[in-house]
Amino acid sequence: MAKFVTIGERIHCISPTIREAMANRDPAPILKRAKEQIDAGATYLDVNIGPAENGGEELMKWAVRLIQDNFDNHPLCLDTANSKAIEAGLSVYNPVRGKAIVNSADAGDRIGNIDLAAANGAICFALCSKAGVPSDNDERMACCQELLERGMEQGMDPEDLWFDPLFLVIKGMQDKQMEVLEFIKMCSDMGFKTTGGLSNVSNGMPKLIRPIIDSATVAMAMMNGLTSAIVNPCDLRLMETIKSCDVIRGETLYADSYLEL
């Protein structure tokens, strides 16, 4: 394995500030969040431009160049339901510091995004679902196989498919939590990389509780072999937990100042 990969989630068009900045092509708010996340240690930055049905291609190109030009080609994760916009983003992406990530393909309508990743030498998030939440791990595994086959057909290295079990919200789906963790273990045992939107688990919880639940979840998931996650890197407790788990997993050598690195 390798050090845990964190993908910063804070450039997301659900945020009114970011949505407005994207609509007006205003660099400042986006650069501010990019800097905060990079300073906090995010390996990748997610760039979520939303459904972006109109003008998505130009918007993604603009966002990719904006962030990479200002932050020494920091690696990015291109996140939208609009495949054309992802393709446009990949066309201007500089992979010198890490392959781009296509966020995401699933085993349903969006399986074609795997082809897009394969054609552009990118990593692809592979959601183990067809539509909506998978009912159990058998369904997740069936999706995983379909996604894997598609990637192999396209000549992808299985290392470049990062399987997403779909983290589920505890408030409402508490009984599904162990199942998600078990699926991560199944993927890990097969040698696959995994990822997911970690903060889903604490959705709807009080602000003070979320870092605690997110940290506990990431620790348990890392124990089961989780290799990356989409997270809020500005959550200090969470980042400290990830660094500590990396030490315990032996992915990074301990030094007294390990939290400062």
């Binding site: 050598l253 301990y254 030094a255 007294d256 100042s257 400062e260 690195l261």
Partner: peptide
């Protein structure tokens, strides 16, 4: 080994 890394850090 841990001190080796720590010294490089500081």
């Amino acid at each position: 080994i841990n001190l080796a890394k720590q010294l490089n850090v500081v």
